[in-house]
């Protein structure tokens, strides 16, 4: 038991080593290092363009890195030299990617499929379940997110909050080890924000999934996360438990962002 824990501790769920990324010559991430242990709930905060969304996108392989390495529980996503990394070939990267799920800011639901099929089809295409099994599981997940009645509607017939819950159910259906959320509250009415929080907390209790969440809502981040990462210009300027980061941040940029008085050095 002790040995198992040691192994787990030596293999973080996400390990980002010396990662750099630039868009059109403008650096977004610069030599970033980050480790996230299994089961942690991490909120990524920071001003727009600070690189927090880019981290989610490169974990999901929607972007590739310019330098460094990304490992998922010890398994590298890139091959070749660290200064010229190359994403693994399709067959191998799919095995890594299958461990990660993502909920997009604008949900990315398939408009031509009804809610049930939006959730069932990915299971079928990934060979995780047959048609009947996938549909049963989709119904269960819809019950769980409180949309049991909406299975046969098209996405366009749902409200923003309902769409997001479908998107979460769809990501959960593939049973990922890591879930990525890009601005999950930005498209919602303020009174729906606590519903999302309850849902995410419930998922954590049930599945123990590692979660990375990009948000602008301080209160949401504080209530959700085990750990807060504050980003500025592609670097982590603050890293700690919510209570510490929100009440007594070390870095002046964080203080400025949170509206706290700046400390003279």
């Amino acid at each position: 038991m002790i040995i198992m824990e040691q192994i787990a501790a030596s293999r973080p769920m996400v390990q980002i080593s010396d990662v750099s990324k630039a868009f059109n010559g403008i650096s977004v991430l610069d030599g970033l290092n980050l480790e996230i242990p299994i089961g942690q709930k991490v909120a990524l905060l920071g001003p727009s363009g600070s690189g927090k969304t880019t981290i989610l996108r490169l974990l999901m392989t929607l972007e590739t890195i310019d330098a460094g390495q990304v490992r998922i529980e010890g398994v590298p996503m890139y091959e070749g030299a660290p200064d010229a990394p190359c994403l693994l070939p399709e067959g191998q990267i799919r095995a890594v990617r299958s461990r990660i799920g993502m909920v997009f800011q604008h949900f990315g639901l398939f408009p031509h499929l009804n809610v049930l099929n939006n959730i069932a089809l990915p299971q079928i295409l990934n060979g995780q379940a047959g048609k009947t099994e996938a549909e049963n599981r989709a119904h269960e997940l819809l019950q769980m997110v409180g949309l049991g009645e909406k299975a046969y509607l098209l996405p366009d017939q749902l409200s923003g909050g309902q769409k997001q819950r479908v998107a979460i159910a769809r990501a959960l259906a593939l049973q990922p080890d890591i879930l990525l959320f890009d601005e999950p509250t930005s498209a919602l009415d303020p009174q729906r924000v606590s519903d999302v929080l309850d849902l995410l907390n419930m998922i954590c209790r049930k599945t123990g999934t590692t979660m990375l969440l990009v948000t602008h809502e301080m209160e949401f981040a504080r209530q959700f996360a085990d750990r807060i990462l504050f980003f500025d210009h592609g670097q982590i300027v603050e890293d700690g438990a919510p209570d510490v980061v929100f009440t007594n941040p070390k870095d002046n940029r964080t203080r400025a962002f949170l509206g706290l008085p700046v400390i003279d050095v």
Partner: peptide, 13 residues
Amino acid sequence: RDQYEACCALNFT
């Protein structure tokens, strides 16, 4: 583009 990205996130070929 969101459709392509959703497909990637769902690990479709």
